[in-house]
Amino acid sequence: MSTNLTDRGSTRPRGATDDHPLARTILIALGACFIVLFLVLPLVTVFAQALKNGVAAAMDSIVEPDALSAIKLTVIAAGIAVPLNVAFGLSASWAISKFDFRGKSFLITLIDLPFSVSPVVSGLVYVLIFGMQGWFGPYLREHDIKIIFALPGIVLATMFVTFPFVARELIPLMTDQGRDEEEAATSLGASGWKTFRRVTLPNVKWALLYGVLLCNARAMGEFGAVSVVSGHIRGQTNTMPLHIEVLYNDYQFVAAFAVASLLALLALVTLAVKSFLEWHYADEIAAIHKH
């Protein structure tokens, strides 16, 4: 993109593929209106409502015990679900990108499946298995094991919803990178594990970070699936999004938006790091331009 002075303004005649300035202005204005109405205003609303009664009031609703327990539960659930999905993503992308076997494209389709399932259905499937009238319901009740309306159910639902994130960032990139470097390493005597750690992992680190980031954002913010399996027990099985729902339905708007602003901040940090990674390591995050 040349940046000499004649490039902009009306001094240069309009090129054959440039739009009429009026059309350009109208389109930018329309797009800007849409972005402001649908993206900027909702975001501003969250912080404006949270700070309506001042910073102190907002802080009070965040350090209150039920809110703190919701924050803790959210961090624990994401802390279990995200590493498991990272392990799965690495393992799946190793198998898919470094080997040829039958049914590979079918496997990739199956991995993407959770993206096309409604969050509520994602929670529902675990209730059908572990719920009171589910497959294992009677057995679990007999042995006093709680999965639904407890932490394990929340973790399972979170895992389902965030299942493809890491894998789908890594698979296209590792497929593009091929297997030459790994084959060279093993032929020089490196073990498989060492090859993976010293050759493969450094090659995909930014894409991995990218996937973990998106996976974590979704894990901490998931609402529909967790809502089905949690039982909404205040101070016990409420994650942050569920706590927000309870507060909002209790007409405690300031408190609801105060907790919501924490999640909004997490979303903004995620977007900032994500954009940074995209600008600086675009070549190393192959998946972006492919979906």
């Binding site: 993206l39 909702p42 975001l43 609303t45 969250v46 409502q49 969050p119 998106l214 954002a217 901490m220 913010g221 998931e222 609402f223 529909g224 942050m240 999004p241 569920l242 927000i244 729902e245 909002y248 609801a256 938006f257 919501a260 999640l263 909004a264 979303a267 903004l268 995620t270 977007l271 994500k274």
Partner: peptide, 12 residues
């Protein structure tokens, strides 16, 4: 809309 939790978007 990808990054913002749906419940936050909902109340906003």
């Amino acid at each position: 809309p990808f990054a913002l939790p749906t419940a936050v978007a909902g109340i906003a």
